[in-house]
């Protein structure tokens, strides 16, 4: 029965070793997907390369369906897995700022680590910038604390919010993803930039 570590109280050393090994898999998958290239990542917003869309939604669906089935076969107790806590204002404001950061910088934190690992100097600069941004938030924290803590809804699920079962929500996400994949494949033909995609 999972999750293994919280249930069986595994030692911290082994826990960190597992973190390191999972990280290797994470980094390998990101780099193989082509996420070590900022122009490839940014391609999603101009249509010439929609790899981000395909990888992101495929990964989310595999994990979503996996969690659903592991729970169904009683191999994973989903009542004790971490469901992100929802603070309405800060989730939206944070997401909007991150979105601007994405189109300006061309990476997100995870992909920048992966790109820096293969020698991309722009990724290293981005990483430095991220640390600076986190530091600025830390230093100005008292200014944001009210809005940061406002409208707390707890670890609530989308399925609960709209009043449908988890299974039906996953089915709807699968349908949405298939439509988006189809649009993505179409966009790559319509907005193709062989000059860019060839060098990536």
């Amino acid at each position: 029965m999972g999750p293994v570590i919280p249930i069986y109280e595994i030692s911290q050393e082994l826990n960190f070793l597992i973190a390191f090994i999972i990280g290797i898999g994470f980094g390998f998958a990101l780099e193989q997907a082509g996420f070590s290239s900022s122009r490839k990542l940014a391609g999603m917003f101009y249509g010439y390369d929609t790899t981000v869309l395909k990888v992101f939604f495929t990964a989310a669906l595999v994990a979503m369906i996996g969690i659903l089935f592991l729970n169904y076969f009683e191999m994973l107790d989903t009542s004790i897995i971490y469901v992100n806590e929802y603070f309405i204002n800060s989730a939206i404001i944070g997401g909007v700022i991150m979105g601007i950061g994405f189109i300006v910088g061309g990476f997100c934190p995870g992909t920048s680590v992966c790109a820096a690992a293969i020698g991309k100097l722009d990724a290293l600069a981005y990483l430095g910038g991220s640390l600076l941004g986190i530091f600025i938030f830390g230093e100005t924290y008292p200014f944001w604390i009210d809005i940061y803590m406002k409208n707390y809804l707890g670890g609530i699920k989308l399925s609960t919010t709209i009043g449908i079962s988890d299974g039906l929500l996953v089915l709807l996400v699968i349908i949405a993803a298939v439509i988006m994949f189809w649009v993505g494949e179409w966009a790559e033909k319509k907005f193709k930039r062989p000059d860019i995609t060839k060098e990536l």
Partner: peptide, 26 residues
């Protein structure tokens, strides 16, 4: 631009309690 974008994303990730990996994907 990379430093600027990184700074915005870093700031936003604290505001939003996680980035593309921790908040959006997971």
């Amino acid at each position: 631009m990379a430093i600027l974008g990184g700074a915005l994303f870093g700031f936003g990730s604290q505001f939003g309690r996680g980035c593309t990996s921790g908040a959006a994907l997971s």
